[in-house]
Design a protein around this nucleic acid. Structure first.
Lengths: 180, 180
DNA sequence: TATTGTTATACTCTATAACTATA
DNA sequence: TATAGTTATAGAGTATAACAATA
């Protein structure tokens, strides 16, 4: 994730020259959202990636007891699900564990594997993050009316999933790659 | 610009879990467009950045005669307009010049400065690129009907420029930063 | 002394490969 | 032999700083 840059002179004028293509607008919006979301993530290790991992880990109960009964995902499963390289997952989990939001538990059935579960603190953190992200979305969509925003969200969702073409898998691959 | 990654197993399933927030959809769409556009750029040095530079340079005439009468932009002006670091601009122009699409001309009034102009070949290349980019946009928006696509474009444009808030400048800064 | 453009250096991510401990 | 996780190494991309030429 690139650092926020110092303001640059001349960009406003450049907008007049650049702001007429889809790619540009898309880039601006995605970047704007990312910056707003970044603030929401705060010091959560890994930013958006850390959030996704936490969100996945939170599907299972806090340390001590399973929330559902299903076994928490292993590091490898998590990495594959989110499209993150398993070596990167190691670093990411190191940081998330140090931050106290997830825990690695030895799998009794396979001592090579580690099961990843969110801690109670991690769950609380996740609830906060979800709320803040909803706010971030509202900020980004503020220029639109309520109806428009709903329509925009719907179309965006359709575009992202590309249900009409066989490209859903590819789109998802891209999304996952985006997290890398 | 990240390289296209090898397909990753499991992303499709992950989509079901991830695909419910704006940030995710935005990321997918921006990434999808970027990949499609990347193909359109072909071997143009610098990808999207190279395109923007070429586009700017093409505002002035091919080598030998000014198209308008205004002097072509200097490297520094170009860098500031597009929000690219001037050291990066050096490398980028090296590549674009080697590719034969732009030329550096000494400024008679200030021998430190270099004026950047598109070559005839650069202009032809730009026309191609513009056409291909329009196609790329169509591909990305294909899931929408004609009416929807128009509405989507309009809303996206409004969101990107954020005219209702005083954030236009900030948004443009972000857009420029995006090119870095 | 300040500015334009260039070159050199360092830092951040990410990708690849090598290693361990289990299976 | 293959797999889960870790660690080490190397590459691309970018930012920072030093430099030469000119103002």
């Amino acid at each position: 994730m690139p650092e926020p840059d110092a303001p640059v002179r001349g960009d406003v004028e450049a907008c007049a020259a650049l702001g007429d293509d889809l790619g540009w607008a898309l880039g601006v919006l995605a970047r704007t959202y990312r910056d707003v979301a970044k603030q929401a993530f705060g010091d959560l290790p890994g930013g958006a990636r850390g959030y996704q991992v936490l969100r996945y880990a939170a599907k299972w109960g806090p340390a001590g007891g399973p929330g559902t009964g299903e076994a928490p995902a292993t590091q490898l499963a998590l990495a594959q699900q989110l499209g993150i390289d398993r070596t990167v997952m190691t670093y990411l989990l190191d940081d998330l564990e140090r931050a106290g939001v997830v825990e690695r538990h030895a799998d009794p059935a396979d001592r090579r594997a580690r099961r990843i579960a969110a801690t109670a603190e991690g769950r609380a953190r996740l609830a906060e993050l979800d709320a803040r992200l909803r706010e971030a979305e509202d900020v980004v969509l503020r220029p639109l009316s309520g109806e428009e925003a709903a329509a925009f969200r719907g179309m965006l969702q359709r575009l992202a999933t590309q249900v009409d073409e066989g490209t859903a898998a590819a789109a998802c691959d891209e999304a996952a790659a985006d997290l890398r």
